[in-house]
């Protein structure tokens, strides 16, 4: 088999003197769509942040595409959508500028030729072409989230890490986004997505990892649908005609025995 996209062994993270993650082993093979589930505060965000080197780990080892974290990791192949935009800064910045910053990675400190086209295309992909030169601080919460998605997609990643990408996003845009992810998935992109509800993603997900108190409580097939959301009264609207309308999501029931 080819090298796994993510390979974490014995991962442990301590923040503020408290153990947040402990003994996490996670291997994500290429092309898989992995859902990371768990209650608020169970450590999902901390896990992806430590996998990407945002928070320093206190134990264990992480490899991305077979390379250890650090300058030599293939950062151009990784796209990350954080849970939220940082608190508004003092200086205005446009959506276009934020997306352009997504073109920098590793030791690439200046955007390459043709960056303007790429940034505008990425914004158009999330339906924000007409807002490219607006201040991000003046966009709505969901529009800001879409800017963050465009910033991750602009470098055409082979690994997409999404931290609750659809929270605060309206249903048509969610569906468009799921279409985009499924297109990338078909092209071979590996996806790790943190969710509270499988929702529109449910048809894409190959495997689910459930965290509880900073440990893996379940690793295997995604939890089964609970039914009440998948009833016949639950219909979807769609922003554009779609050959295959997205299936509505079953809500997640985290009933797993470790």
């Amino acid at each position: 088999m080819s090298t796994p996209v993510i390979e974490a062994t014995g991962l442990g993270v301590t923040l503020g003197g408290q153990p947040i993650l402990d003994g996490i082993d996670l291997v994500v093979p290429a092309g898989e769509v992995l859902a990371l589930l768990g209650a608020n505060g169970s450590g999902k965000s901390t896990l992806v942040r430590s996998l990407l080197g945002v928070v320093t780990r206190t134990a264990g080892d992480v490899r991305l595409f077979g390379a250890p974290l650090g300058p030599s990791a293939p950062w151009d192949r990784i796209g990350y959508v954080p849970q939220r935009l940082p608190a508004a800064a003092g200086v205005p910045a446009t959506a276009y500028e934020v997306v352009t910053s997504g073109l920098l990675h590793g030791r690439t400190l200046r955007p390459h030729r043709g960056h303007k086209r790429r940034a505008l295309d990425a914004l158009a992909d999330v339906g924000l072409a007409d807002r490219a030169f607006h201040r991000v601080q003046e966009l709505s919460g969901g529009q800001q989230q879409r800017v963050l998605i465009a910033r991750a997609l602009v470098r055409d990643p082979d690994l997409l890490v999404l931290d609750e990408p659809t929270s605060g996003i309206d249903i048509p845009t969610q569906a468009t986004f799921v279409d985009t992810v499924s297109r990338l998935h078909d092209a071979g992109t590996t996806v790790v997505v943190i969710l509270h509800e499988l929702g529109p993603f449910s048809s894409l997900i190959d495997r689910a990892v459930v965290l509880r108190h900073g440990r893996v409580a379940h690793d295997g097939p995604p939890p089964r649908a609970r039914g009440e959301h998948a009833g016949e009264w639950h219909d979807h609207t769609h922003a554009h005609p779609d050959p295959e309308p997205p299936r509505t999501g079953p809500s997640l029931s985290v009933e797993v025995n470790p």
Partner: peptide
């Protein structure tokens, strides 16, 4: 652009492997 990236969103800059 690089200085903007780290000043605007340090977390994303780290997750992009920027120094």
């Amino acid at each position: 652009t690089a200085l903007f990236a780290v000043s605007h969103d340090e977390e994303f800059a780290r997750a992009s492997g920027l120094p």
